[in-house]
């Protein structure tokens, strides 16, 4: 029983990370059909923003020493700022471009950010100590669960709740939903395109910062490539969740996290190194069964 409970918590916490990532991708995709491959590098950037640039092995913590009630808003601001800046400088110029062109542009932007970090900080991972008390285990129905897992799950649920409230009950949320449903029509009806898109980027950037914080707390390190893995899984989750569907993206994020944990827990030892092959294989199977995604929005029907 405790073992099962432990697995459930493992799956939930990993799934939470993926779900937050998928949300960040889906927010932008919804309004401008852009798969933002720079999202992973946004995550890394937010983490490195806590350090002073230095190629020395020992990190010089800059913002990381702030109390949490200052650090968290600051980092969310950094994420939102970077994300909005990228929209203003880069993506705004791709409004009418082919999605493949946009995708490659976002990849190139991520490439630039990554190599900039590399130049400023070198590739050696830097240590960051954030809230060591979160590393302590708590006991829950006989299972020992690291505090951070619980916090991660709670944060994800809170973020989801806030986002749902925002989308359902505010004017901006309504505009965003309208834009995601049918962008041209929304514009005709007076939704300001640039405003909505900028808002989507801000939300996406804040989600990147949140993931960065969780990853940094969990691993205790800042590493150039730390966002890449989450970004990839989040991208896949967005698609199998049904592109444009926010609840779908979240559900698929949790599903992939759960699949990964369950494969790790149940595969025989020699097959465990092939875990990712099983996960990707499962993704292909899901796509074959539901090509429009698990929770495709009605608008996703192809039109002639």
């Amino acid at each position: 029983m405790t073992a099962v409970l432990q697995i459930v918590f493992d799956a939930l916490s990993l799934g939470s990370l993926y779900a937050l990532g998928a949300l960040g991708i889906a927010a932008v995709f919804g309004v401008m059909r852009l798969v933002n491959f720079a999202h992973g590098d946004f995550i890394a950037f937010c983490v490195f923003a806590m350090l002073l640039p230095s190629v020395d092995a020992t990190a010089i913590v800059f913002a990381g020493q702030l109390p949490f009630y200052l650090l968290i808003p600051l980092l969310l601001l950094v994420g939102a700022g970077l994300s909005m800046l990228s929209e203003v400088i880069v993506f705004r110029r791709f409004r009418n471009a082919n999605p493949a062109t946009m995708m490659i542009a976002s990849f190139a932007l991520g490439f630039v950010i990554r190599h900039l970090l590399l130049l400023l900080y070198s590739s050696r991972p830097k240590s960051i100590t954030l809230w060591p008390s979160l590393g302590l285990p708590v006991e829950f129905l006989g299972a020992h669960i690291p505090m951070l897992q619980v916090v991660t799950i709670i944060i994800t649920l809170v973020v989801l709740a806030v986002l749902v409230l925002f989308l359902k009950h505010t004017r901006y949320g309504l505009e965003m939903r309208a834009a995601a449903e049918n962008f041209t029509m929304a514009r005709m009806l007076g939704v300001r395109a640039n405003g909505v898109i900028l808002l989507a980027f801000a939300i996406s950037g804040m989600l990147a910062a949140a993931i960065g914080l969780i990853l940094a707390t969990n691993s205790g390190t800042a590493d150039i490539g730390m966002g890449a893995n989450v970004m990839l899984i989040a991208f896949i989750a967005t698609v199998i969740g049904g592109l444009g569907s926010v609840p779908g993206a979240v559900a698929a994020g949790f599903l992939i996290g759960a699949a990964s944990v369950v494969f790790q827990a149940t595969l025989p030892h020699d097959a465990r190194v092939f875990r990712d092959a099983f996960v990707y294989g499962a993704v292909i199977v899901v796509l074959l069964v539901r090509p429009q995604g698990l929770f495709a929005p009605k608008s996703a029907k192809q039109r002639v």
Binding site: A3, Q6, I7, D10, L14, N218, N229, V230, A265, H269
Partner: peptide, 19 residues
């Protein structure tokens, strides 16, 4: 057990040790 360097979390590997 095995894991991968960039795994976001190795919780399930740890669960195996703890069991």
């Amino acid at each position: 057990d095995t894991f991968k360097n960039d795994d976001a979390s190795i919780a399930s590997q740890i669960t195996r040790i703890k069991s």
